[in-house]
Each structure stands twice: as C-alpha cells, then as structure tokens.
C-alpha cells in the first residue's frame, strides 16, 4: 500500500513535469548543416529553409515586401477572387484568424492571388472591402506570374498552377502556411477545415510565446 502511494505520487510529479515543458512548433522545409568555427572550435549549425525576398502590390497598389513582415509572424495562402470552389471556404475560416488577431500588431495575413491577369489591385481592393478587412493587417497581393508561382512552389511549398483542363483554369491547394519572424516555415494547415484552422490559431499562440512577442 505504501509503495502504491509512493508510485502514484511519482506519477503525479512526472505528469506535472511533462505539463511544464512547452512543446515548440517544428521547423519545416529543407535544411542543411554547416560547420562554423566558434572560439577556435568547429560547431555544426543548421540552416533552415526561409522565404525568399519578395515585393508585390497590395490592394491599395502599394508595394509590400518581406521588409513589412520583419519581426512579425504571418499566415499566408494562395487564392483568386473569382474562385468559387475552396477560396470562399478558406477565407471564411481566415476571417476567424483576422478577427482573433485584429489588434495584435505582431501578426499579419498575406493572401497571394494566382489569377495574375485578372486580379489587379483594384479587383483585390473590391474583394477586401467586401470582405471587410483592413489593408495593414490582411494584404491581398498581385505579382507577376513567375514571382507568384515561384514563391508558392519554392518558398511556401504550396502547389499552385495554371491548368487549361480545370473549369476556371487555375488549380491551387488550400494550405494556410505559418511563417515565423525568421522567415522559416512553422506549420501548414488545411484552410478549408475549421478544426485545422483552430489548431493553427493555437499554434500561433505557441509561436508568439516562443518569439517573445506579447501583445502591444
């Protein structure tokens, strides 16, 4: 009996310990080891995949670039305004993220239009206005065909391409990709599923804590 009690107490302690250690989000994408010499000793460091520098026009026809995302975490996706399949569902879910972080200056949302011909800034502005969102929090961006499809494939690892056999001519995945302040990929969530988006918001809290970005 005595031992049993001891055992139970030990388990309790163990439980308490494991609760205390906050799990960190994984770092996704490619990585490469590099050897560095620090204080005369060789140390192996890891270089993680980061988002390549970019510059696009947002819905106000203002250039926004990777500089505007410095010291911020952000969520990004690929869509187009005429899309009537997964995009409305994604952006209905993204609205929840927008509402949650509306007043948090450390969080941004970046939506790339893959309809480079049709979605000029004025179209994106009309879309954003009808959705009821502010430019400095949620940017809808227009870029050249190459820049948008390259950043999707190489930086964010999201499939997006033009396909003549598709009814609307454009195909893309519905991922919401979470990027940290060092421009590293920290999560990818199915933006068409409300429970995945809820999970993402929980992960965003973890990331904000890890980055020491408290509100204000």
């Amino acid at each position: 009996m005595k031992y049993l009690l001891l055992f139970a107490t030990a388990i309790c302690f163990l439980q308490a310990c494991s609760n205390k250690t906050e799990s960190k989000l994984p770092i996704l994408g490619e990585r490469a080891p590099v050897e560095k010499i620090v204080d005369g000793k060789t140390v192996v460091d890891t270089i993680y995949q980061t988002i390549a520098p970019f510059a696009y026009l947002n819905q106000d026809s203002v250039v926004i670039s990777d500089k505007d995302f410095e010291n911020k975490i952000y969520v990004t996706d690929f869509f187009f305004t005429a899309c009537n399949t997964i995009c409305p569902v994604m952006h209905r879910n993204m609205m929840e993220v927008y509402k949650q972080y509306k007043d948090n200056p450390h969080v941004k949302i970046l939506s790339h239009s893959i309809d480079v011909k049709y979605d000029v800034p004025s179209r994106l502005k009309a879309y954003a206005d009808k959705l009821g969102v502010e430019s400095d929090k949620w940017a809808f961006v227009h870029g050249s065909r190459d820049s948008i499809f390259n950043v999707a494939a190489k930086s964010y690892l999201v499939a997006a391409y033009e396909d003549a056999s598709d009814k609307q001519g454009l195909v893309h995945q519905g991922w919401f990709v979470l990027v940290d302040t060092k421009k590293r990929l920290r999560g990818a969530y199915d933006g068409t599923k409300p429970d995945q988006v809820k999970l993402m918001m929980a992960d965003m809290e973890k990331l904000l804590k890890e980055e020491n970005l408290n509100e204000k």
Partner: peptide
C-alpha cells in the same frame, strides 16, 4: 455551400 456557407451565412458583402 462554398460561397453561401453551411448555415446560409454568406461571406461578408462578397456573397
């Protein structure tokens, strides 16, 4: 449903 929503709620002023 994609645009008008599972509860007919629409989406902002878009739909």
């Amino acid at each position: 449903q994609n645009c008008h929503g599972a509860n007919g709620e629409g989406l902002g002023k878009l739909y």
